[in-house]
Structures are given as structure tokens and as C-alpha cells.
């Protein structure tokens, strides 16, 4: 095992235009907050991809376990009443 360190891993989220959601762009290595932000800027916005950046240490991300997918996501599949197309509107109704 190498004793060399390549700094901590951070996840980078970029907002491509104001008003749009922040999207996961990738990861960078950095030793501190400022370096993480600068590295994210230097690596993920070289072609004008961004107007704003979030970075966070990867170790703080909590991910769902694929084994729980049935329990977590399947129950939402039969709740069609949450979607507008579920409802029948009278013929001729407008602006609804």
C-alpha cells in the first residue's frame, strides 16, 4: 500500500445556467475547501460549462443500497393518482 497521498476525493456539482439545477459533473482531488473549488473550476468549466459550482467531500455522500431498490422505489409505481393524466376532465374543459 502506497504511503503517498493524492488528497481527498470531492464531488463536483455544476449549474450550467442560472435557474437550472446543479448537476453532478464528476470528482476532483483536493486538500482543502478552496483548492476543491479551484480545481473544480479548472477541470469542469474549461469550456464555459458553468455559472456556479458546489463541491463536497465524497465521504459525506450517503447512497442508497441497490438491495433496497424494491422497497424504496417500487411502491411509487402504482400511485398513478399523483400524475395529472390520471384524472378525467369533462369534454371541452379548458385551461386546466
Amino acid at each position: 500500500m502506497s504511503t503517498d497521498t493524492q488528497f481527498d476525493l470531492w464531488e463536483v456539482f455544476i449549474q450550467s445556467k442560472s435557474g437550472l439545477p446543479y448537476m453532478h459533473a464528476g470528482s476532483v482531488h483536493a486538500s482543502d475547501n478552496k483548492m476543491a473549488l479551484q480545481n473544480a473550476r479548472d477541470i469542469y468549466t474549461r469550456r464555459g460549462e458553468g455559472t456556479s459550482i458546489w463541491v463536497m467531500p465524497s465521504k459525506y455522500i450517503v447512497a442508497s443500497n441497490p438491495d433496497d431498490n424494491d422497497m424504496l422505489f417500487d411502491p411509487a409505481n402504482d400511485k398513478a393518482y399523483r400524475h395529472p393524466t390520471f384524472y378525467t376532465m369533462p369534454e371541452g374543459a379548458k385551461n386546466i
Binding site: D4, T5, F7, S31, M35
Partner: peptide, 9 residues
Amino acid sequence: VREAAIAFK
């Protein structure tokens, strides 16, 4: 350099 950055942090 990497050692310095980590020590600083």
C-alpha cells in the same frame, strides 16, 4: 508540495 498542503489543512 502534497505533504505541505495536507499539513496546512
